[in-house]
Design a protein around this nucleic acid. Structure first.
Lengths: 339, 339
DNA sequence: CTGTTAGCGCGTTCAG
DNA sequence: CTGAACGCGCTAACAG
């Protein structure tokens, strides 16, 4: 069906080796070059990457595995990253692990089978099953957003503790003492780090550990944030402010607050990620915003660098800073205790 | 680096053909089966899909091209679809065309090079450049969300005219006469259909074509929706209600309304897609909701069906119905003219 | 059920 | 600069 070098040879009389050289940027005499170009058009020829990859052992393709396709945070990163990679001549295969470690392992398996030259992964948990297989085949791996235990891979993360601390700082400055935290299980790197950052920050300010934090069980979801906020508000003493440790929780908490707004005083709130939220929701919320574009660029650099390097590199770790985008004062103001 | 059949043969003494048969579900005598399994574990062997695909001319992989990675509507569909396809034994390669017809053509080129068995595409415009190449290679194509002109491909869309009509019906019943529309350029299938549906519905109700509609130029974005709403409200007579023809416009319009709410009477509004919005925004908006799960399932069925079919099938078109999820009456109530 | 043989489409030696 | 020959890892025919 599809045309091959042989078809081009048939039309041009030029040998396979010369045709190959043409398609790989080698020096080909002008006359042959024109012939090949003509035949390529006539046949609608397109190089078969599969055969090329099999032979050359380089697919010029990178794999990306993300924990959740349906997450603006991840898709924004991937969108920027894919652009960088394409500029460098690499195609990108995107796989969704749907928050499942098993699906994640399958995805890595799939990508290795496709002979990708490298893998960028936003891991589900603290351990990634397929990592050993990738290492055995010399396929470099970069993790993004979450670090991995005991693995010799490059990593791009933000300073999660500082990120949460900036949120706590704002709330304490506004007069809050009883601050709640909506965070997921410690098994997730970002959740663990953010919870630790929260404890540190509260202790630094008040001289003691926070009276209440609330850890929401799996799955980390909008629904979880919704329920979590309701439970937080049922505590005694009732928190006057709540920090949401990720985007989903921020959305869920916002929904819950919307429902409660009519009946009860609502807590101050600081959320996470996705600046669009700040424009949709009124009053405008305060958000910890991660530098998605930078994350993407640095991840692309790391993986390309590692592929290009002729010798093994030491694992590298890039830590970026987040930004606190302050919203309407009404959303974080202290209105007095409520217990 | 990576182990091959030859390595397994070396460890087991079993011939390549038998090993191949083992990995392809054929009947292999128990003794050999055990030997192969042992060697597979010892070597960390994994089948090389590239070589397999080259030889068998079936990659067991499908390509998905979407117009915008950063769109919940698309990613939700893909997420469901990928699950269906995986159940059928197919891997999925996701590519982002970032709303560019050129990038879309590149993506199709890329997928063909990877020898995918089929392509599901959410097209950018009315014509898709790579379609001929796919057809020439016998790679079946299914378009989703948007139909394509003059192409023998399967299609899954919703009844866009009925969708918009349901929104208009609600607003007219509530007493609105001057209804504005926020829609993108006619070059986009969904935008064109929804605008036509809007005109039909208004005419049916009022006996005349709508006095005002507003077509927002490229790009179809949140920013566009924001500006579009502001311009709509500057018209005379001022529309008392606005229908947003897609998700981005709905978000942008909501932002604009939030800003205006303090100074001026806000128009009634009906939005599109993404039920999450309905939970975040207060008062709860009315939304035209597309059956994303169904869209995904039908698209998967069409492409799998076509791959499996031993003979060429006629192009098929699936049209699904949307649902109007009615929100808080305050968001669509008629409060009297404002001119 | 097993083994041998011959490619899939391409890139890379070499000799010319 | 060009062409012939070989092999990447695997599957599909056969014959046994």
């Amino acid at each position: 069906m599809a045309a091959t070098y042989k078809d081009i040879r048939r039309l041009t009389g030029v040998s396979l080796a010369t045709i190959s050289k043409y398609f790989n940027g080698g020096n080909v005499i002008h006359n042959n070059r024109v012939l090949i170009e003509q035949a390529t058009r006539d046949l609608g020829y397109q190089v078969n990457d599969v055969a090329r990859g099999l032979r050359s052992r380089r697919s010029m393709t990178l794999g990306v595995v993300l924990a959740e396709l349906n997450s603006t945070f991840y898709t924004t990163i991937i969108s920027s990253m894919e652009e960088k990679l394409r500029e460098a001549g690499y195609g990108t295969i995107i796989c969704d692990s749907r928050g499942s470690a098993e699906a994640e392992a399958e995805a890595i398996h799939f990508l290795i089978g496709k002979m990708v030259d490298g893998i960028v992964i936003m891991p589900v948990g603290d351990e990634v099953a397929g990592l050993a297989a990738a290492a055995a085949r010399g396929v470099p791996v970069v993790t993004v957003d979450r670090a991995i235990a005991n693995a010799a891979v490059d990593t791009v993360v933000i300073d999660n503790r500082a990120a949460i601390a900036s949120a706590v700082d704002l709330l304490v400055d506004a007069g809050h003492i009883d601050i709640g935290l909506l965070a997921g299980p410690d098994a997730i790197f970002t959740m663990r780090e953010r919870r630790l950052g929260f404890r540190e920050a509260v202790k630094r300010h008040t001289g003691r550990l926070p009276r209440r934090t609330f850890t929401q069980p799996d799955p980390v979801s909008v629904q979880g944030g919704y329920q979590g906020l309701r439970r937080l508000l049922a505590l005694e003493p009732r928190p006057t402010a709540v920090v949401c440790a990720n985007y989903e929780f921020t959305v869920g908490a916002t929904v819950a607050i919307n429902e409660l707004a009519a009946d009860a005083p609502v807590p101050a709130i600081v959320g996470f990620d996705n600046l669009d939220l700040a424009r949709i929701i009124r009053p405008r919320p305060t958000l910890v915003v991660q530098p998605v574009a930078q994350i993407a660029v640095r991840a692309a650099e790391l993986i390309l660098d590692r592929i290009a390097s002729p010798f093994p590199l030491e694992p590298r770790s890039v830590v970026l800073e987040s930004e606190l985008v302050v919203g309407d004062p009404a959303t974080y103001a202290f209105r007095g205790g409520q217990s």
